[in-house]
């Protein structure tokens, strides 16, 4: 038997990522509910386990135990394929993220490109979910999600492109190496506009409030996942949280110095920064009302896209000089 060492490495990495996603899902559910409770002046979950710590476990068990229901007229294949399609690419995304100086699933020269390419798959999943459910609300949610994702992908790519030009590489580890230990050495100091554009687009891409139009429950009941129950819904849910982690990870790598930090650099700095960003995202969700769809697209086409272009141009000029 001669197993190539890369394969073993990747297998272990995938297993670790699966554990990481699962654990983070639980933590984020708890965190989101506790933070929401804090913002809304209520205790949040506190019945199950000490301080309600076991609440997400109870939620997960409930979701797993529920019956999977498919509407009679829904397309059987696509209906079940959609949540899987939404969830599986996530493993690939985490593979290239440098959690620490040596803590990377797979050193890959086109890491950034891989992440951008595979996050695009989520749109397809939402579109399929909406269409195959044979539910009009789902269909509307899917249509919204496609329009929104495609629109916001453009300024996001432009913002990331500027960073790639600046660093001269698509390798995420390399990018972190080029940033320093101290906060003023992080890239956010040189690219604040790109960070703002990236962050707004990231919220929109992950369908988080105030840009959560594909699942705007006051308009479309639950949008594209209206008909899903049990773990099929759970997969969408988990995927949504995983994407939040991914975009936060990428933001940390591109703008906040990755694992670099004052004192001892290491994955703890990385996780700290990621969670700080996630907390901001949660904070925004529980604070703002939802924008309207035409407003959402206007923000994109009228503001973010021109700004991203300007940012790209300025970056190019600086890089050339």
């Amino acid at each position: 038997m001669n197993i190539p060492p890369e394969l073993i490495h990747i297998s272990i990495a995938l297993a670790a990522i699966a554990a990481f996603i699962g654990l983070n899902g639980l933590v984020l559910v708890y965190l989101e509910r506790k933070v929401a409770g804090f913002i809304q002046r209520r205790p949040g979950p506190y019945e199950v386990g000490p301080w309600g710590l076991l609440q997400p476990v109870a939620d997960a068990v409930k979701l797993v135990g529920k019956q999977l229901v498919r509407p009679k007229v829904a397309d059987p294949w696509l209906y079940w394929a959609a949540p899987l399609l939404s969830f599986t690419p996530i493993f690939l995304l985490f593979l290239v993220i440098p959690f620490g100086p040596t803590l990377t699933g797979m050193e890959f020269n086109y890491g950034l490109l891989l992440i951008l390419a595979f996050t695009g798959l989520n749109v397809l999943a939402l579109c399929l979910a909406g269409w195959s459910s044979a539910n009009k609300y789902s269909l509307l949610g899917a249509a919204r999600s496609v329009a929104q994702s495609i629109a916001y992908e453009i300024p996001l790519l432009l913002a990331v492109l500027a960073i790639a030009f600046q660093f001269g590489t698509l390798n995420l580890t390399e990018m972190v190496h080029q940033q320093g230990q101290w906060p003023w050495q992080w890239n956010i100091m040189f690219q604040p506009l790109a960070f703002v554009i990236y962050f707004l687009c990231a919220i929109a891409e992950t369908n988080r409030a105030p840009f959560d139009l594909p699942e705007a429950e006051s308009e479309l009941t639950a949008g594209f996942h209206t008909e899903y129950s049990g773990m099929a819904f759970g997969l969408f849910f988990l995927a949504e949280y995983a994407y939040i982690i991914v975009v936060s990870c990428v933001a940390v790598v591109l703008f906040l110095g990755g694992w670099q930090g004052p004192g001892a650099p290491g994955f703890w700095w990385f996780l700290l920064k990621v969670y700080a960003l996630i907390l901001v995202i949660i904070w925004i969700r529980w604070t703002y009302p939802r924008v309207r769809f035409d407003q959402l697209l206007n923000i994109n086409w009228k503001w973010l896209l021109p700004l991203a272009l300007v940012n790209l141009l300025l970056t190019l000029i600086f890089v050339k000089i």
Partner: peptide, 16 residues
């Protein structure tokens, strides 16, 4: 009304 508009928090304050 704010819940309709997608803001989750005001209703908690209103209720309290």
């Amino acid at each position: 009304y704010l819940l309709d508009l997608g803001a989750f928090t005001p209703i908690m304050y209103g209720f309290a």
